[in-house]
Design a binder for these strands. Structure first.
Length: 422
DNA sequence: AATATAAGCAACCGCATGGTG
DNA sequence: TCACCATGCGGTTGCTTATAT
């Protein structure tokens, strides 16, 4: 078979000497004008590895200038990052790796690079490919993604989309949010047909953490507002269609008409690492429905819990801008009883953890956080909460403890019976 | 065995960001 | 302040292989 890569650019597989040879010859002539594309050959790999051995990573464009490689800097970087650098894991993802991916995606969305920092030896590209493959599979299996009223490539767009309503709501306008029932034909769970998939290719990630929370009065949920919050339309759809089996009665301890839909409460402890909550993996919505807020808007709208942690992270960044700064202990600005150990470098992992904590009702955090940090040995964030910390500084909360914290009945905690979405 | 479809994967592209002169 | 450059990220494409019909 003659393979063609990138349209008109012929190239062979790495073992195809004829194709690559012809291409190589061509590249020598056109070195100033046409850089080689397509699969890398072993010879090219060897050149790149040897160069990096001597000069180290970075300055990728210099590779092409200083070697016989006729690849652009971006291509060299990509090849090194994804295939040639040491300690890369190869092969399919293990179940131990898959679960964190699901959890991370539920918290971070399509932040592949960020996710990769939590999965040693794995690249963002691998994670992205894994996720996209899985997403396609689940869609093909017809699992519910969103309701019929918004599905389909040719449906007329409503005059006021749910997102617009959400946006209006977070700007303080009072909008009623009738809870859709399972029997509501327009909002009932729908199975997405494979034919609908092409439409979804434009969909982007939708994360619970971006959903604005409304107080019962319709205003924003502040950091110390009651934890019982009115769900927005988007949250309603999450509850009714991503967890279609769950009904209001599945959430004991919360009024049926007003609760914060936050499955993120379902922490558990396993193998001394922070287990992120089990969340649906298919958190996507069609592009004409979802309208993800900017990070700034998200912070503004969800307020608040995150503000506390951002406050701390801001302090950490300020403090750690001095590389020689010794490890310091700071006090929570809003939580005098809590303390945070600030290491000597600012870590994205901390920000990830902060995002995770964003999903915890503010009152649940109040006075609880004792220590927050990141364990580089285990590559896991750790969080000490007063009275519930484990010996190894991992998160010491199990689902029953959390249920108690948030005054739900642990014996009938709904998240333990949530259907798995993978 | 031939064909169709799905899955897995590698690589490219466009864009955003940050540093520097 | 601006332009330029290097780098990094996420989306997308298209090829190869595996599996189903």
């Amino acid at each position: 078979m003659v393979a063609h890569f990138g349209g008109s650019s012929p190239s062979g597989s790495p073992s195809s000497s004829s194709a690559s040879g012809r291409r190589d010859g061509e590249s020598v002539v056109n070195k100033q004008t046409a850089l080689k594309k397509g699969p890398w050959t072993r010879a090219e790999d060897a050149i790149l590895v040897e160069y990096i051995k001597v000069h180290g990573e970075g300055n990728w464009n210099a590779v092409q200038r200083n070697t016989s490689l006729n690849r652009c800097g971006k291509s060299c970087r990509l090849r090194w990052i994804n295939h040639l650098r040491p300690n890369l894991k190869k092969g399919s993802f293990s179940p131990q790796e898959e679960r964190p991916i699901l959890h991370l995606h539920s918290q971070l969305g399509n932040k592949w690079a960020r996710m990769a920092t939590h999965l040693p030896g794995r690249t963002d590209n691998e994670i992205k490919n894994y996720w996209n493959t899985r997403l396609k599979r689940r869609i093909r299996q017809g699992l519910p993604l969103y309701p019929n009223d918004i599905a389909g490539p040719h449906r007329p767009q409503p005059a006021s989309s749910p997102v617009q309503q959400d946006r209006a709501a977070v700007r303080g306008r009072s909008i009623s949010h009738p809870l859709p029932s399972q029997s509501n034909p327009t909002l009932g769970p729908s199975a997405l047909s494979p034919q609908s998939y092409s439409h979804l290719k434009t969909a982007t990630t939708f994360s619970y953490s971006t959903v604005p929370l409304l107080s019962p009065s319709g205003g924003l949920a502040g950091p110390y507002s009651p934890t019982i919050l009115s769900p927005t339309p988007i949250q309603n759809r999450c509850r009714d269609h991503i967890y279609p089996e769950a009904t209001a009665s599945s959430f004991p301890g919360f009024p049926a008409s007003s609760f914060q839909f936050s499955p993120s409460l379902s922490f558990s402890v396993n193998n001394s690492s922070l287990q992120l909550p089990e969340l649906p993996s298919n958190q996507i919505m069609p592009s004409h429905v979802q309208d993800p807020m900017t990070e700034h808007e998200t912070r503004q709208n969800t307020g608040s819990t995150i503000a506390l942690l951002d406050d701390l992270l801001g302090q950490a960044q300020a403090l750690t801008s001095n590389k020689n700064l010794p490890e310091q202990v700071n006090h929570f600005h809003h939580h005098p009883g809590a303390r945070m150990v600030i290491k000597n470098e600012v870590r994205e992992e901390d920000r990830d953890l902060a995002r995770l904590l964003q999903s915890i009702p503010p009152a649940g955090l109040d006075g609880l956080i004792n220590d927050i940090g990141y364990n580089h040995d285990t590559q896991q964030p750790h969080l000490d909460l007063d009275g519930v910390a484990n010996e190894d500084n991992s998160l010491g909360l199990d689902i029953q403890q959390l249920a108690l914290l948030f005054q739900a009945d642990p014996a009938s905690c709904p998240w333990t019976s949530m259907p798995k979405i993978f």
